[in-house]
Structure formats: structure tokens, C-alpha cells
């Protein structure tokens, strides 16, 4: 199209084909491992939970850096700060709910 690239915001980084492909391959691997572990009962229950949660966490990081280009954000990193704040609230809500409700187990 016209020469719009000339005023495309410079901080608006978009990665390269290579970074997208790496991200895609990593996320496929990080998805296949937990599915394989669970479907084949490869590990003990507790270990399985830990491993698949770590895989999900890594997958989140892969999407953030390879697809959402969080690392390339211009300073000041308002988007990153907002995200970190959101994650703190997320952890508080989820961990807090699990913790407090563990005292409410019937029977």
C-alpha cells in the first residue's frame, strides 16, 4: 500500500517472521508436553500439576514476548506496568480464594 510505513510508529515493533515461527514452535512444544504427560500418566499426580502449570506459565511468557512484543515496548513501559499490576491482582484473587476456601471443605 501507499507509503504509510513512513509514519508507522517506531515503537510499534512487530518482530520478524523468524520470531513468530520460533514463538509458534515453542508454544506447540509447550502444549504437546503437558498433553503427553497427562494422557499417558507419565508422572505422579503432584509432579504432573507442577509441570503442567509451569508449561502454561512458560507458554504465557512465549506469547507475551514473541507474539505481543512486550519486550520491545517504548519507555516508559506503561503497558508492562499495567500488566504486572493486573497479574498481582490475579494472583491475589486466585490464591486468596483457594486459601480461604480450603477452610470451608465440607466433611
Amino acid at each position: 500500500m501507499e507509503n504509510h510505513n513512513s509514519h508507522s510508529p517506531s515503537h510499534d515493533s512487530h518482530g520478524s517472521m523468524k520470531s513468530y515461527v520460533i514463538g509458534f514452535v515453542l508454544s506447540i512444544i509447550l502444549t504437546i508436553i503437558p498433553i503427553a504427560i497427562v494422557m499417558n500418566d507419565m508422572l505422579s499426580k503432584q509432579l504432573t500439576i507442577i509441570v503442567i502449570l509451569i508449561m502454561a506459565g512458560l507458554q504465557f511468557v512465549v506469547q507475551l514476548f514473541f507474539f505481543m512484543h512486550l519486550k520491545d515496548e517504548a519507555k516508559p513501559r506503561y503497558n508492562t506496568m499495567a500488566l504486572v499490576f493486573g497479574l498481582i491482582i490475579l494472583l491475589t484473587v486466585v490464591a486468596g480464594s483457594i486459601w480461604i476456601m480450603s477452610y470451608n471443605v465440607v466433611g
Binding site: P9, H11, D12, Y78, N79, A82, L83, F85, G86, L87, I89, L90, V93, V94, G96, S97, I98, M101
Partner: peptide, 28 residues
């Protein structure tokens, strides 16, 4: 435009919190 993108990140944060409460409910 970049302010609007930031606004969208704000929306994503609230959406994270929405899903967070639903996940917390589900886990409990």
C-alpha cells in the same frame, strides 16, 4: 493512536481479572 493502544491494554488487564475470578471460582 498509542494512547488508544494503552487503553486496550487497560481493557486486557480488566479481562485478566474477570477470567481470574472465574478461574478462582472453578478451582474452589
Amino acid at each position: 493512536e498509542s494512547l488508544k493502544t494503552f487503553g486496550f491494554w487497560m481493557f486486557l488487564i480488566t479481562d485478566i481479572i474477570l477470567f481470574g475470578t472465574l478461574f478462582a471460582t472453578f478451582i474452589v
